[in-house]
Amino acid sequence: MLKFLICFSLSLVVSEAIQCLPNQCAMVRCAAVTQDTCNGVIVPNGGFCGCCDSCKEMLIEGAYCGSTFLLGMPSNSQCGDGLHCDTHTMRCVSKTARETQTGPCAAAHQQYLATKQQNGGFGLLGAVEPLCDENGFYQSKQCEGSVCTCVSKQGKNILDYRADIWRSNDMDCQCARDQQEYMDTGLIGRFFYCTPNGNYQNHQCLGSVCHCIDNRGQMLGTKTVNIGDLDKLNC
């Protein structure tokens, strides 16, 4: 009986807490909210019943976001830019993570975030956050320690294409990825001219005829030269 009375009383408190009277704000004295006192963003009229400005903490990816309202009071936090609160995990996740939960990289990334959360925001020693594309597969370049390598969509290293991390700014691994996917088809006859870091070279030769190519292996312009005059191509 006592438990029932407590629950009933709490329900009355909640019902009263979420009701905003027409003259509610006239009875409220607002405290000043400034950027000096707010470690987040200031929401105009974001407080209870819209009477006062409020300060919202911007949560980072992986942070708990399950607390939305308490006795009718608006939440004092929200997921940061580019993130939303996943209703299944109650964690802040990116749009990509939500839409591509079945991809091999997306699954590995979710596991990484879960482990990091369990360890108080710190990843396991040696654990590297995987970089995923918009479809949940691994991005072609993955870095660990001081080395970046080219990988397949499933995250496996492609041959020995790599570069020191401080020399990897322009590393896109497009040639290495295209070469691997072509080899996976079982076809033969196409040659790939890749640099050691997995990018396309600035030229390609078919037989004895060479021409300039872009960073996706597509021909640039119409000029061709004999392979013996490659230095005259000026790609």
Rank of each mutant, 00 (worst) to 15 (best):
L159N: 14
A107K: 13
S9Q: 06
Q111S: 13
R190M: 12
Q19V: 15
K3S: 15
G46T: 06
I188L: 13
C55R: 08
G82M: 02
L2E: 14
D229S: 14
Q19E: 13
M58H: 00
P22N: 09
A127V: 02
Q174L: 10
H84G: 01
Y193R: 02
C20G: 06
K116M: 15
F4T: 05
I6A: 10
T34K: 07
Q111I: 02
L131Y: 01
I227R: 13
Q154G: 10
K232N: 12
P44L: 10
Q139P: 00
S54H: 07
C55I: 05
D81V: 08
N215W: 03
S11W: 11
G221T: 05
C49T: 08
L230K: 05
I158C: 11
C51A: 10
G207F: 02
G72N: 04
G103H: 04
N226W: 12
P44N: 09
R98V: 07
C7V: 11
K156N: 14
L59S: 01
T195S: 12
C205M: 07
E16F: 14
D178T: 01
S208K: 08
L70W: 06
G50R: 07
S75D: 07
A63R: 01
A63Q: 07
V225N: 05
R29Y: 07
K153L: 13
G217L: 03
I60P: 00
T102Q: 14
V14F: 12
Q154C: 00
E134R: 09
N199A: 07
N197E: 13
C143R: 01
T224G: 01
C143E: 05
G120A: 11
E129P: 00
G136L: 04
N135F: 14
F122C: 00
G198F: 06
Y64W: 12
I188Y: 13
T68P: 00
P130V: 05
D36M: 10
